[in-house]
C-alpha cells in the first residue's frame, strides 16, 4: 500500500456519509469508527471529519497493558485484538487525537482500520470512497505532496509566512500508510 488518507477539514459539509459508510465495511460490525463534529454550531456550520492517523509509533499501542494493539505490515494500526484486550480503556486516554472507541458491553476497544480489506488492495476505504466533498481522500503519496505544496503556496500568496514554530499548521492533515 502506498496511499495516503488526506483530510481537508474546510471541505467538509457535515453530511456524515463517512459515518454511514464506515458501518458498511467488512469487520466493522455495523459500528462507525470515525467522527464528524461541529467545531461550534452556535458560531458556524463548519464541521470536520476525524479519523485515525495510523501513527508509526502509536501512543494507543504503547499504553496498552495487554499489548493488544497490533500494526500490520502495511502500517495499519488495528483495533485491539479481541483475545488480548482487557478492556482498560487506556488507549482512549492515551491517544493524542481521541480516536479509539470503547464498547462497554463487549468490553473491547475498536477503531479505524482503514477498511483493511479494501486498502490492502489499494481500494479506497469506504469513508474516502463516498465522501461527497473530498474532505476525505485516499490518494497517492505524490499527489499528497503536490497538494501540500499548493496549500503552502496559497498561504504565501496571501502574505502569511510559516515560521519554524507553526509551519506544520500550513499543511492540511495527511496521514496514512506509506513506505518511505
Amino acid at each position: 500500500m502506498n496511499k495516503i488518507m488526506y483530510l481537508e477539514f474546510e471541505r467538509c459539509i457535515g453530511c456524515r456519509a463517512c459515518l454511514a459508510a464506515c458501518r458498511e465495511c467488512g469487520d466493522h460490525e455495523g459500528t462507525e469508527r470515525n467522527y464528524v463534529d461541529y467545531v461550534d454550531f452556535m458560531e458556524s456550520r463548519q464541521t470536520f471529519p476525524m479519523m485515525c492517523m495510523h501513527c508509526k509509533d502509536p501512543a494507543c499501542a504503547r499504553v496498552c497493558p495487554a499489548n493488544a494493539i497490533q500494526i500490520t505490515e502495511e502500517g495499519v494500526v488495528l483495533s485491539a485484538s479481541e483475545e488480548k484486550c482487557i478492556g482498560c480503556r487506556n488507549c482512549t486516554f492515551g491517544c493524542p487525537f481521541g480516536i479509539p472507541k470503547f464498547d462497554f458491553d463487549q468490553n473491547k476497544m475498536y477503531k479505524c482500520d482503514m477498511c483493511y480489506d479494501r486498502s490492502k488492495h489499494d481500494i479506497a476505504p469506504m469513508c474516502a470512497s463516498v465522501c461527497p466533498s473530498d474532505a476525505i481522500r485516499f490518494i497517492d503519496y505524490d499527489e499528497m505532496q503536490t497538494l501540500r505544496r499548493r496549500r503552502t503556496q496559497l498561504n504565501l500568496v496571501e502574505g502569511r509566512k510559516p515560521s519554524e514554530q507553526d509551519k506544520w499548521q500550513y499543511v492540511p492533515e495527511f496521514f496514512g500508510v506509506y513506505t518511505d
Binding site: 453530511c15 456519509a17 454511514a20 479506497a124 470512497s129 461527497p132
Partner: peptide, 10 residues
C-alpha cells in the same frame, strides 16, 4: 465517481 451521501449509503 462513487460518492454517496448518507442516504445513498444506507
Amino acid at each position: 465517481l462513487g460518492k454517496l451521501c448518507p442516504k445513498g449509503v444506507t
